[in-house]
Design a binder for these strands. Structure first.
Lengths: 124, 124
DNA sequence: TAATGAACATCATGTTCATCG
DNA sequence: CGATGAACATGATGTTCATTA
């Protein structure tokens, strides 16, 4: 009945990490899937992290299922015909998003503490 | 031929994290599998992380395959008959261990930077 | 060909089962 | 029952394929 599996509570998952960024990006600028991927890859390049397109799409779809984002199909800037999928908050999506961010903040803080502890414990 | 899959380079894996701790614990005190599990669970309890016994054993076995640790079957303290498996460094295991730790240090630093960036980018 | 998405494959990890003392 | 380990099951994530503009 309940969960099939109980997470051990190690570090946060990539999916959650991406969802957080997608929310923040939606607050800031209007972008579509592959463009977001470009932006993230550039951002994380110095950190050796290179997400793939599937993960970004799945994270976006997750946010839609969560009722936070909705799709807006629009013509791409400059292009007359190419239609791409932009995202914006649903009616109460922004509020939900803030709640999600709050949770992720706690999770990021927890992970940061865990990693710092490991550095201290093993390289004290 | 080469790798079947290329990691995206997100956060470090639990297995590597545990291997690092196992090396450090081996440097410090002589413990056996389930006792190590106890210690780690106590340590990480405040951080919401509770590893399971299989992961610890797999990490130990990994270190053996890496030629870093070897098993030493011994009588458990106080018990006359119960035999448990302790671990110590192989001949050149300690040197290999230091190399591994060095790599993990870099990896932990990278993860720390990534998480701090996320905090800054999304909650700056 | 770029963009989106689904299907598929594999890896990381959690749960259960077997054995031994 | 505690300890070790293997077998098994599931979840997370990377790769490939299909469709459409």
């Amino acid at each position: 009945m309940g969960d099939k599996r109980t997470p051990s509570g190690f570090l946060l998952k990539q999916r959650a990490f991406l969802k957080l960024y997608l929310i923040t990006l939606t607050e800031q600028e209007r972008l579509y899937g592959l463009k977001i991927l470009d932006v993230l890859r550039q951002e994380f390049k110095p950190f050796g992290y290179r997400p793939n397109h599937s993960e970004v799409y799945k994270a976006l779809h997750d946010l839609i299922e969560d009722g936070i984002l909705k799709q807006v199909k629009m013509k791409k800037e400059g292009m007359k015909y190419q239609e791409v999928v932009y995202y914006r908050f649903t009616e109460d999506g922004y509020k939900k998003a803030q709640l999600y961010k709050k949770q992720l903040k706690a999770e990021l803080d927890r992970c940061d503490a865990l990693i710092r502890k490991a550095i201290k414990d093993n390289f004290g």
